[in-house]
Amino acid sequence: MQNTWLITGPPGCGKTTWIRDSFLKHQGTCAYLRLSGSEQDGLQQGHNAGIDSTWLQDQIPELLDLRTTAGAPRPTAPRLLLIEVQQFQPPTSSGPDGIDPQVLRQLEVFNLRPDRSLHFGLDPELPHEDVLDFKRLESWHRNLQGCVWDPNSLSSFWFELVNGAYGDVYRAKALMNMPDGRSFLCNWMVSQQSSQFLPLEAVEPPAGRPNRTSHLVVQGRALDPAGIESTIDDCLLTDDVLELHQAPLRDRQHALQSNG
């Protein structure tokens, strides 16, 4: 038997965290799908850059992402399929009738029909602390694949970003590469006291630029994309500097292997 639930809510309300916790509690097979929500007047959707999917797959390696595995043969049928959609307003009615038509069209492509639909801020079984009612929202994003950050510069940039140096940022989410091969999920919501910096389980060897998802998505008002871009460019490591960071790490690893 398969449970197919549609999980909707505004940006930063905790959809992905709730989905992760639900998967971790579930005993059987888990599957995930992220769909695009509808834009409304003055409310831009956050770009679906694969951050949520990458984070969930890192935390739950056996997780099936239907977007990448839809065509592949599945050894076992998923038991719990959670579909995530960013949606600013609660549905007008519960059940399938309340599903946004644009989301329904995407579901048809995957031949899916949710048997439950839960919206943050509406359904009491979901947490509601971070559910905000946005009136206007701009969205900006940058693909950072292959980019590696100077760690202290990332710390400064993120502090500036969430403290209003580049506009009123309500929501910021990113996967950022460090020179030592680690990647961090950087997560900020205006309703929270502080940012989360969560290391991914998967660590790349410190040998050049990693080829994995790295992206920054920002939502807010009066954003300053040129300012953000300019600061990011000052924070990213060149090939030469990256090598300066990584060479001693490789030497240390080789020494440990030789001694071990």
């Binding site: 510069s153 710390s155 000052d234 924070c235």
Partner: peptide, 9 residues
Amino acid sequence: YPSQLAERR
């Protein structure tokens, strides 16, 4: 400088 960003700035 405490970071590459601070140095360039």
